[in-house]
Simulated assay, not measured.
Amino acid sequence: MHVDAEIYLKDGPSFLHRHLPFWIAVWVGRFVKMVIPLLVILIPLFAYIPLAKKFLITLEVSSGICRAQDNREERTKSGT
């Protein structure tokens, strides 16, 4: 006998199948099986978003400073 069949015979129908129509119980079960792994992946990524934003802003500011220094050096070399 299949393992799922043994579990069903031992424990009976799941909570969702006891309290919801079949099609809703199946839909909710599939939805949960898709959402939980996505949350496990996405929640840690949300923690890194502020750090990435800060890094990008720092990178942009530092490149702007380098461009300003290059412009200043060019102006001093040309004698303006």
Rank of each mutant, 00 (worst) to 15 (best):
P13N: 02
P13W: 04
L16I: 03
L16T: 04
L16R: 11
H17T: 05
H17A: 14
H17L: 15
R18S: 10
H19W: 15
H19A: 10
H19E: 08
L20A: 05
L20I: 04
P21Y: 01
F22D: 06
F22R: 12
W23E: 13
I24M: 13
A25D: 04
A25Y: 11
A25V: 07
A25H: 10
A25F: 10
V26Q: 14
V26T: 14
W27C: 11
W27Q: 11
G29D: 09
G29I: 05
G29F: 05
F31A: 13
F31T: 12
V32E: 09
V32H: 13
K33D: 04
M34F: 13
M34Y: 11
V35M: 15
V35S: 12
V35A: 15
I36K: 14
P37H: 12
L38Y: 13
L38E: 03
L39A: 11
I43Y: 05
I43K: 07
L45M: 14
F46R: 09
A47L: 06
A47K: 05
I49Y: 06
I49K: 04
I49E: 00
P50G: 02
P50R: 10
L51Q: 02
L51R: 02
A52V: 09
A52D: 01
K53A: 12
K54S: 04
F55K: 05
F55L: 09
L56D: 01
I57R: 04
T58L: 06
T58G: 07
T58W: 07
L59I: 05
L59Y: 10
E60K: 00
V61R: 08
V61Y: 04
S62L: 11
S62Q: 12
S62Y: 06
S63K: 12
S63M: 12
S63D: 07
I65L: 09
I65V: 11
C66Y: 08
C66N: 03
C66G: 00
R67E: 01
R67F: 07
A68C: 01
A68N: 00
Q69Y: 07
D70R: 14
R72W: 09
R72H: 07
E73T: 02
E73K: 10
E73M: 07
E73C: 03
E73R: 10
E73V: 03
E74D: 03
E74G: 00
R75L: 09
T76D: 04
K77A: 12
K77F: 10
K77G: 02
